[in-house]
Simulated scan of single mutants.
Amino acid sequence: MARTLRGARIGVVVLVLLTLAGAYHFGIFARVAEPKALAETLVEMGAWGYLAFILAYTVLQPFGVPGTIFVVAAPLIWPWQTAFALSMIGTMCASVVGFSFARFVAKDWISARIPARLRKYDESLARNAFQTVVVLRLIFWMPQVLHSFFGVSKVGFWTHFWGSLVGYVPPLLLVSYLGGEMFDASGRLQTDAWPILAGLLIASLLIAALARTYERRRLSGGPRSSRPARGR
């Protein structure tokens, strides 16, 4: 059984490496290097662009390609409702792939490389996993290292899934709806976008602070309320 599991893990790693090598060979990395190039490619594909967007996002983002390239490109091509839906699907699929790869394929190797700035959230995940996942996704979005951190942590798959979904909604909705005002045709950030991003950052930090305050009050009040009253 152990040998079979080891063989399966090696097979997955080989498949990932072959996929990335194929993407490099066929110039896919060059096309997704910036939002403008990605947008032009997807427009040329017509209706197949929807599927290509999700597949490329799912396969490439967990292994190095920044997810913001896809999120920024989407509103340059489609109406904001379509851009938001595709960005959510692609982001969730990429998160699941990154989480699953870290948990089931390369847990020991990845666990040794998780930065200390994320390790400090281990205790929060143990106390309140869902809330912590929401806050971290809301603040940091979708970096590969965060997928890996959740994968090697003790947080459950579905807790990670639903917590990530909730945490992704505000930033992805904002970028999809205001993408035309935040980015130019080349996908570069416009000057007028800085107040919007600052507002999103402030809102995210405020939500995180409120969540921590609520958690501290709940934990500090819990032990006292659980003590039985002494008789006189």
Rank of each mutant, 00 (worst) to 15 (best):
M1R: 14
A2P: 12
R3P: 07
R3T: 15
R6G: 15
G7Q: 14
A8W: 13
R9Y: 06
G11K: 09
V14S: 12
T19W: 07
A21K: 10
Y24C: 07
F26M: 00
I28Y: 12
F29N: 08
F29R: 12
F29L: 15
E34F: 04
K36I: 03
A37L: 14
E44H: 15
A47S: 11
A47P: 09
L60Q: 08
P62G: 13
F63N: 03
P66Y: 07
T68E: 09
A73G: 03
A73Q: 02
A73R: 03
L76Q: 07
Q81P: 13
T82I: 11
F84N: 02
M92F: 08
V96F: 10
V97E: 01
F99C: 06
A102E: 06
A106M: 09
K107T: 09
D108N: 15
W109D: 12
S111H: 12
R113D: 00
R113C: 01
I114P: 02
A116P: 07
A116V: 12
L118S: 02
R119C: 01
K120Q: 13
K120H: 00
E123I: 11
S124Q: 15
A126M: 15
N128R: 14
A129D: 13
F130T: 14
T132Y: 12
V134F: 07
V134Q: 04
V135Q: 01
V135C: 06
M142V: 13
L146H: 00
H147E: 15
H147N: 15
H147Q: 13
S148A: 14
G151V: 07
V155Q: 01
H160V: 05
H160C: 10
W162R: 10
W162T: 15
S176I: 04
G179T: 08
E181G: 09
E181H: 02
A185Y: 03
R188V: 12
Q190S: 08
Q190D: 07
T191K: 07
I196F: 11
A198P: 07
I207W: 12
A209P: 02
Y214V: 08
R218V: 15
